[in-house]
Each structure stands twice: as C-alpha cells, then as structure tokens.
C-alpha cells in the first residue's frame, strides 16, 4: 500500500509549540493517511509526545495549521478536539484511579451506553479488564492500567486514535494482543497515529512512518521501505541516538 496515495485525515503544517520559555516543536510537517497506522518514531525529547498533545489542544500551537478532515483545528479547546471523534491515549495512561474499570469505560463512551458486543470484542484482546470489571482502576497493575487506557479509546468507534507509547512496560504476550487490536481497529477504518520507541513493535504495526528529531519531522515514508533499508534505519534512528549521547 502506498502512503502517498492515501488521503491524509490529519495534516500538520509548520506547527510550532512553545511550553513556557521552551521552543519544543520547530515547524512540524506531518501527514497521517486515512485508514492507516502511522508510526511516529524518534529519540527521547524529539517532540513526539508534544506533537500528540498539540493536536489534542492540551498545548496550543504557537504557529502553523493542524488540519483534521480538511478543517483547521489549531486553537480549539481539548474537549472540542475530542468531540471530533479523536481519542488520545497518553503515555501516563491517565486512568481515573478512584473509579472502577466499568466506570472508566462508561465515561469514555460519550455517545451512549456501553455496547456489550464491542466490550466482548475488547475483552478478547484484554481479558484482564473483564476479570477486574468492578474493581477500582487504581488497584490494577501497570500493564492492566495501560490496557484500560487503550480500551477507553476503543470503547466507541473513533475516526482518529493518538496513542503514546502503548507497548511501554507491557509483557510480550500483551504486546502481541495489542498488535492484533490495532490491526483490527485499522480494519474498522480507524486512522491511528502511534508514538513508539520500540522499533520491533513499530515495524509489525505501522503502514507509514515519520521520524522526528529536534522538534521536526526528518523523514516520512512507507514503513516497509524503512524496514528494508538498514542504512536508512541507522542514519535516522542511529543518528539520533548518536546525537543524543
């Protein structure tokens, strides 16, 4: 499948973001193809999380445009961005500790009551959530909290999913389930932008890839090309690691 041929659902054009006195994003240009999984790679501090948070309006872009389905959403408040059917899974998970697993999912289902068929579908990937359905989310293990955080984004069909490092701290068997889950979401027509450090995981899930360094996208293309070209991998990912040391 060609990334260039697919129409972008989300497109960032020259996006700059400042957090207090710090200039984090220096003109990010990024196109996320509709119905595909786009991986956003890069070393720590490259600006990946800031890019997702800027799209969500959690940090406002100081310059540039963020087009979602043709509409510029830069400057919208976070709830308004979320209401466009954009779900965000933060790296910190952000679960509601004092609420039960059921209540966490209930709050994420903003369009109506929980759909039991969809829940069963989610439980297929994340059986622990069914086991601890009425348990306070704060009592779950780290991996289970991560699953709950991802399940919250899956509980209703969304148009765009922004996921920040989903594989972090998860057991290999759960990561395999996640890969299947993301592919199932893609088959449903959901567009996914996934931030990841784990290149192995990224190569198994991604259709397209963008690599960030120092607040800019330094490479964008098809994931298969990056997998096949070890020199490119070394240059993009190795270069960043070297410069980080």
């Amino acid at each position: 499948m060609s990334a260039a041929a697919a129409e972008p659902l989300l497109a960032l054009e020259g996006v700059h973001t400042h957090i207090g006195p710090y200039h984090i994003l220096h003109g990010v240009d990024l196109a996320v193809a509709k119905g595909r999984i786009t991986m956003l790679l890069g070393r720590n501090g490259a600006g990946k999380t800031t890019t997702l948070r800027t799209v969500m309006g959690l940090w406002q872009a100081s310059a540039g445009a963020i087009h979602f389905d043709g509409r510029n959403i830069a400057g919208l408040a976070t709830p308004d961005v979320a209401r466009l059917d954009i779900a965000y899974v933060p790296e910190s998970m952000g679960i509601f500790s004092d609420l039960t697993v059921r209540e966490n999912l209930f709050l994420a289902a903003r369009k109506g009551p929980l759909d039991s068929a969809r829940l069963d579908w989610i439980f297929g990937f994340m059986p622990a959530l069914k086991t601890f359905w009425l348990q306070r989310a704060g009592l779950l293990s780290g991996g289970q909290k991560q699953m709950l955080s991802i399940a919250r984004a899956m509980v209703e069909p969304r148009r765009l999913l922004l996921v920040d490092e989903p594989s972090k701290g998860l057991a290999p068997v759960i990561i395999q389930n996640l890969i299947v889950a993301f592919k199932a979401l893609r088959a449903e027509g959901v567009t996914i932008l996934l931030v990841e450090q784990n290149f192995n995981f990224a190569s198994m899930v991604g259709d397209t890839v963008a690599v960030m360094d120092n607040g800019r996208v330094v490479h964008a293309g098809v994931m298969a090309d990056l997998i096949a070209d070890e020199a490119l991998q070394a240059r993009l990912l190795g270069l960043s690691l070297d410069s980080h040391q």
Binding site: L58, T78, P79, A82, Y88, G94, I95, F96, R110
Partner: peptide, 12 residues
C-alpha cells in the same frame, strides 16, 4: 482524578 484526561475525553 485527572483533569487533563477528562478534557481529552471531551468533558468541559
């Protein structure tokens, strides 16, 4: 519990 997260779910 988490005001950023509730906003990201669409609650004002």
């Amino acid at each position: 519990d988490n005001d950023f997260r509730s906003e990201a779910l669409g609650y004002r």
